[in-house]
Simulated scan of single mutants.
Amino acid sequence: MSAWKQHTVIPGFRLSLGYTLFYVGLIILLPIAALVGETLSMSASQLWTVITDEQVLASFRLSFGTALFAASMNVVFGTLVAWVLVRYSFPAKRIFDALIDLPFALPTAVAGIALVAIYGPRGLLGEGLLAVGIKVAYTPVGVTLALIFVGFPFVVRTVQPILQAFECEIEEVSASLGASRMQTVSKVIIPQLFPALLTGFSLALARGIGEYGSVIFIAGNLPYVSEITPLLVVSRLERFDYTGATAIACSMLAFSLVILMVINGLQGRLMRRYHSHSGGVV
């Protein structure tokens, strides 16, 4: 049997494979190839000059830094929310569960306007926070809040099915062997959830790095302070600097691919280790 072809009861391998390759190539690879091709039209010195500009570097630090922090926060609190939804029953649970998906359906620009209405200088909470010296809107803090909002459902919906399939008897066995609650969580539950946590983290991170609509309203877009990289790309396009815009976008794409490849590699390594310890039985 071929290493890349498996016979199944349902025929259509060649057709489905051809459709998959065509669709992925048309929807994903072709735009990326166009982006890379436009960037390669620049010389190495021109590319280096564009991506090492202080304003561009500041936007990189803001976009990747806030995305990493927001994804990390979502892993912690998203896991807690998923645990509550799976393990406990409470009034209006279905409504609360449905609200988790709201950032998926809500237009990102609407989310940004809503965040400004809450955390802006005259917002519901922003005015009070500003009175005690805490400024949220038009700062990196506001950018982080927007990224937490749009990335939160990814973690919850990734971890939730794993928790639903998790056998409670394992926790009872751990307790019967004398393990404390913290030991059960750290030694039994977290290792089982870790691959799902990595997946949710990578999805939230990828969404945060490229997020635009929900951020521009609350960020204030101040150069060197709260200007995200996607906005910098848009501003270059508005000035008809297509080469500079594609250079920045391609650099961001390269950084994102490296981060996601590292996360996926770590996830695959953990899965192989889990299968080897469990004897290949899932």
Rank of each mutant, 00 (worst) to 15 (best):
V156Y: 00
V75G: 01
V86E: 07
F13M: 08
L145F: 06
V173I: 14
V173G: 08
P107K: 07
S174F: 01
R157K: 15
F166E: 01
L85E: 01
V84E: 04
V159I: 13
L237W: 12
L260R: 03
P161V: 10
R236S: 11
F13R: 09
G112N: 06
L102E: 04
V155P: 00
L205I: 04
I263R: 06
L257R: 01
F60P: 09
L231P: 01
K5R: 14
P140M: 03
L29H: 06
F217R: 05
S2N: 12
S180Q: 00
A204S: 15
F69S: 11
A114Q: 04
D241S: 09
A245Y: 08
I51Q: 11
L57Q: 10
P161A: 10
A109K: 02
T20M: 15
E238D: 14
L124R: 03
F240C: 14
V233A: 05
S226H: 06
I248P: 04
G244V: 02
G244D: 07
C168I: 07
A58P: 01
L237T: 09
A249M: 00
T108R: 06
I10T: 14
I28P: 07
I190L: 14
F22S: 13
L145R: 02
V9H: 08
I27D: 09
I218D: 10
G120I: 00
L99P: 00
S176I: 01
L15E: 12
G178Q: 06
V233Y: 03
E38V: 05
S186M: 13
I148M: 14
R207I: 10
Q55P: 07
T20A: 15
S72K: 04
P153V: 08
T108V: 11
C168K: 09
L147R: 02
I134L: 15
L203F: 13
V9M: 11
A131E: 12
E54H: 15
